[in-house]
Design a binder for these strands. Structure first.
Lengths: 202, 202
DNA sequence: CCGTTTCTACCGAACGGTCGTTTGGTATAT
DNA sequence: ATATACCAAACGACCGTTCGGTAGAAACGG
């Protein structure tokens, strides 16, 4: 037993695809019915397996949920940091941030809905991590708003409250947006970016 | 059996109080754990009964939830209608509406959280009713915004989108507000009312 | 006022069902 | 021949709900 037996390439790929399809089905079904109302049987049906067979890929239902949360905020957080580390004015930065955030929500609707709706099911460690992500997100907006207030670009008394107002407006789109609706993603993002600026000017 | 036997006054009152305490406990527990994760045993424990005994007052867990939704939006809807039917300018009306809405959320946190979180558990008829309430709420805001755009008080292109942005900002407070926090209810309501106006002016 | 009956409010156990998870087995590909 | 990917059945726990029973208060008859 010198070297671990190499897994066949085709098998490995098929197995990886199966795992992905399980996670995709779980995401969709958790979003539709909610975590508690969704059963392992539902997920198994969706991928064409017996529910017991899911445990070849997944150790528990809870783990399945926890993994759905992992890395979900990274892309938007990265985009936001690139913007705040850049050279734009406060107004330009905030406009770009709102755009990135709203597009992030609109382009990952299922993930966002599960992320916001099933938070309370997470085990303590995972929950703390999610809360930390949300705090970071808030801090990034608050920082730009605070900068703008200091240099007179923005007016108002409470950057924290302003950030919460702004994030609320942007986050709430996940509740009413329908992919084939009247408005395009970018139309909404641009409108909200403009509205955010107005909200902070006098 | 000419007249139904009169229920003793004391009994009647005690029984009514018990029913109220069951609903209050259900509201609190549904809010804390979510509808599906909350058990009838949890509710029974909270009021000091055996879980089977709850069915003397309630016909099912689902009915318990449905009743928690009933009339929950009426007060705020009434206040909003009084404002829109009044004689104020668009700006004055919108400011008052945002104030009323935000205060309605802040002063009924548990109800609002269950209302927004457990919607999807409702049977079809009750769900339609809730959606109708939400549509009415949106229409009231949209109407005032539309009036303001026509007469030049407000600027912008899409009253529907503006209403959604505004409602998102105001509704989202239920996620971050903590009763004994830094800011008072009225401070938040006033700030948001001002922000709403700014959002619609150029 | 007292004895009897009636009904309320609740107990305590049980039931049927569903759920997440485990396990022993097996066909297939390597 | 060996590990993989999956089946098929079963298990134990828990859930919402039902139900026969009962202590005690209220209503009733005298």
């Amino acid at each position: 037993m010198v070297s671990a037996p190499t897994l066949g390439r085709r098998r490995q790929r098929r197995s990886g695809e199966r795992e992905k399809s399980i996670r995709a089905a779980a995401l969709r079904i958790f979003r539709q019915k909610g975590y508690h109302a969704a059963s392992m049987q539902n997920i198994a049906d969706a991928v064409g397996l017996y529910k017991g067979s899911l445990y070849y890929y997944v150790s528990s239902k809870e783990e399945l949920l926890v993994r759905l949360f992992e890395g979900r905020a990274d892309q938007v957080l990265g985009e936001l940091r690139v913007i705040t580390d850049g050279t734009g004015t406060c107004t330009e930065q905030l406009r770009a941030m709102v755009r990135a955030y709203v597009l992030g929500v609109l382009r990952n609707l299922d993930s966002v809905r599960v992320y916001l709706h099933e938070e309370h099911v997470l085990p303590p460690a995972a929950l703390r991590h999610v809360h930390a992500e949300q705090r970071t997100m808030r801090d990034l907006f608050e920082g730009v708003i605070d900068d703008g207030m200091r240099d007179g670009t923005f007016v108002g008394t409470d950057p924290k409250l302003a950030a919460l107002a702004l994030l609320g407006m942007c986050t709430w789109v996940h509740r009413w947006y329908r992919p084939r609706g009247r408005l395009t993603e970018t139309a909404i993002a641009d409108d909200f970016a403009e509205r955010a600026i107005r909200m902070l000017n006098v």
